[in-house]
Amino acid sequence: MAKIIETEGLTKKFDNLTAVDHVTFSVEEGEVFGFLGPNGAGKTTTINMLTTMLKPTEGRATINGHDIAKDSAEVRRSIGVVPQEYTADEDLTGYENLILCADLYGINRSVAKERAKELFALVKLEDAKDRKVKTYSGGMRRRLELACGLVNHPKLLFLDEPTLGLDIQTRQATWDYIRTLKKEYGMSLFLTTHYLEEADSLCDRIAIIDLGKIVRTGTPKELKDSLGGDVIELGVSGGSNLTEELRRMPEIIDVRLEGGNKYRIKAKEGEEVIPRVIDIAKRLGGKVTKVSLTKPSLDDAYLEYTGKSMRQEEGGAAVWKQRITMRRARA
């Protein structure tokens, strides 16, 4: 499969702050790729470089085969961007905004009108399209941004924190749109988020980024598995000791007997292991009194890789200054 994004040692420095530090990754065509990381990790800066709004200090990247530094016009033509902030013109209507976006891509008017119809249906804004954007709610504005990002039928769509500050219903709806895009348009998506469940439910692959560096890349499942599997707690009364027998199963990583008749089992594919564990217990004359299964969440993986401390929300003057530099650089 062709690579839609390829980066090599991509780096951005602002004065003495390295916001993105030698980041190398690639995204396959048709893939939903997520950048997961705490605030200030360098997610937006990476997007800004990939969408040609910021020039990298070092390293290179290609989008759809076009170099972001040398061939930026071609890059812009093949991508759609849904930025973190609202970018629509509040004084115009939703429809006028969308047509303006189409004009900026040089799409001819009759095609633009058709796309507008299609996209307003997709994001369910048909009834509001002739109202000024000023009157839209937060969720409606997000949906309009999404429609604008799709107007050129991009091969690759960038979504920067697509559900930041949205209520649960709108968030679910946004996820549905994103799944639709992947399924029906075969679009590749690059999204940043700090919501773990979002990354978990949408992304084919995730890169966890922290302090400008990618600390781990993999599918959500790989990241969770890398923590050492599911935990099964089993209570058994009577019968002989199960430990030996359980250790023989290939899926089981570790067994510990805790307090007489309680086993703590670490295993891969916990759901499938449980029935067999129960069979073994019965075979050895025991009676299962209690079973529980805990799957590691992406939260655990995330905290494992990015550490548990809060990021730069509090801290000395230097940190505060850094944050201000970053904000300015983004604006």
């Binding site: 969408t51 709004m53 016009a73 902030e85 970018t87 891509y105």
Partner: peptide, 15 residues
């Protein structure tokens, strides 16, 4: 336009 984000959007288009 810069403060309200509109400029950012325009900058990501081939304009």
């Amino acid at each position: 336009d810069r403060r309200l984000g509109f400029l950012n959007k325009v900058l990501t288009t081939p304009v």
